[in-house]
Amino acid sequence: MLTKPQILEALTEVMDPEIPTISLVDLGIVTGIEINEINDVSVTLTPTFSGCPALQVMEDLVRAKVQTLKGVGKVKVETSFDIQWNSDMITDHGRQMLLKHGLAPPPKHHGYIELDILSDVACPQCGSRNTDMRSPFGPTLCRSLHYCKNCLQGFEQFKPVA
């Protein structure tokens, strides 16, 4: 009989299609795992952004991964808003992995977002806080654009979302 920790463990190997250093588990979007007595598995994901174009791809990746587990029955993967994602759900390990990809991790916001929290961010290259926000919208829905006045480089932040 398969167990939830086994499934979760397997899903730590499924990476975000747009940020390949962070797993879907560390991103905090795996919100439900159900296993029945004949090893049918149902996984629920919650979208980071409702308009995220990677949603379908993530569902497919999760389904393919769970299907590789020994003894698994039918696999169902669905996306649901019942638990709403916010950026505080990214794990500490996940934050390290965002940095590894060159993205500033989102600050913990505890439910409250204003422009200030978005612009007070350390440069992922040199660590300086002497940075400017250039735009709250970046190349993907989850990123904002910044500039470091210390190392004179542009960088992106994974946006805090409440």
Binding site: F49, S50, G51, C52, P53, S135, F137, G138, P139, L141
Partner: peptide
Amino acid sequence: EEDIAFSSMAQDKIGQAQ
């Protein structure tokens, strides 16, 4: 930046409609 902003907001809103 505004080109990106309007494109991003468009994507959000269409995703919300869906």
